[in-house]
Simulated assay, not measured.
Amino acid sequence: MKTSFKSSENRRFLMFAILLIVGLFNLGIDVANAQPPAVKNIVLVHGAFADGSGWKPVYDILVKKGYNVSIVQNPLTSLKADVEITNSVINRQDGKVILVGHSWGGTVITEAGVNEKVAALVYVAAFMPDSGETTGKWVAAAPAAPEAGFTDPDQFGYVYFDPAKFHGGFAGDLSQAQSDFMNASQVPIIGKCFEEPVDNVAWKSKPSYGIIATKDKALNPMTERKMYERGKAQITEIEGSHVVFISQAEAVAKVIIKAANAQ
């Protein structure tokens, strides 16, 4: 009886071991066949008259959700210079990247987005030019809102957003105090940047998402729509000013996350 009992136990143990090995083997197959994780690297590119710190509300949301977020600080001295620094940040990433641009930053990501690490593009109240086009072409595509205005180039060639119009034309849905600080710390852009044509166009070969800021006074929302529709971008309308990425950070982050999860 003892021998029979031990033999029965051994058989059960052997069967359990076989089932365990088969289960682990199947688990390995399931893991190998699983879909790759969503893109975790997000690179944010600012536009003219602001710097990368404006992205902090979006940054905070994305980081809390587990994304690795990097912010480009454009010199705003030429399209080439801005594309180079953007590529420098992209190249530091470990894996694929969702590249996000605001305003002038849209022109930058159009050119820099051809980088092989870039999986998709997100345009936030941004320019989305085609090859051979300049940003200035789209600035002039619709009459300027009376709330908006730019200074003439100074002796160094820099252009500022008209300080007297900054709140109404650039950041109308922010508090006066927050707008005043952004006005005082605005980063000027070399005016000739708007005359530089784009050579490479990433949105022709990569998925694109476009956010229209419906109360934008700096870039006409209809101009945004026209560019996005031509580029076959997935369009989201968000009620906000030109700095919609600050005033409506949750809604903007949602579009970026959608882009990351879709790749």
Rank of each mutant, 00 (worst) to 15 (best):
H102M: 05
S103G: 08
V97I: 10
N68I: 03
I85W: 00
N91P: 02
M128A: 15
P143I: 03
S70R: 14
I98W: 01
A120F: 12
V124A: 07
K117I: 12
S78Y: 06
S88D: 14
H102R: 00
V72P: 09
E111I: 02
G105M: 08
A140R: 13
R92A: 14
W104R: 12
K117P: 03
Q93I: 02
D82S: 11
Q73H: 12
A140H: 10
I85L: 01
V97Q: 03
E84W: 01
V72D: 00
P75A: 04
P143C: 05
A120M: 13
V118G: 05
I109F: 03
A126R: 10
E116R: 13
D94H: 13
L121A: 10
W138L: 09
R92S: 15
L79K: 02
L121V: 03
G136A: 10
V139I: 15
A119C: 07
A81E: 15
Y67W: 09
A145S: 15
F127Q: 01
W138Q: 03
G132T: 13
N74Q: 09
T107Y: 04
N68K: 04
V89H: 11
V108T: 11
G105V: 05
T134M: 09
L76V: 00
T135D: 04
N74Y: 04
V114I: 15
G95E: 10
P129I: 11
A142K: 13
A145W: 03
A144E: 02
V118I: 14
N68H: 13
S131K: 15
D130W: 13
Y123H: 08
E133L: 13
I109Q: 04
T77D: 11
A141M: 07
M128T: 15
I109E: 01
V124C: 06
V89R: 01
S70C: 00
Y67L: 01
P129G: 11
T77E: 15
V108I: 09
E84D: 12
G132F: 12
D94C: 05
Y67V: 05
G136H: 03
S103W: 14
G132H: 06
V124I: 15
M128Y: 02
E133M: 12
S70M: 11
T134L: 04
F127I: 02
R92Y: 05
A126Q: 12
V139L: 14
D94F: 04
T110R: 04
I98D: 09
I85H: 06
I109S: 00
N115C: 03
K137L: 13
T77W: 12
L121T: 10
T135P: 00
V97N: 06
G95L: 13
E111Y: 08
A126H: 14
A125Y: 06
A81Q: 12
V89K: 04
E133G: 12
K117D: 11
N91L: 08
G66L: 14
H102Q: 09
L76W: 12
V69L: 14
G66R: 12
S70D: 10
W138R: 00
S131V: 13
D82G: 07
Q93V: 03
I71A: 08
A144G: 08
A141N: 12
A144N: 03
G113K: 14
G95D: 11
N115P: 03
V122F: 07
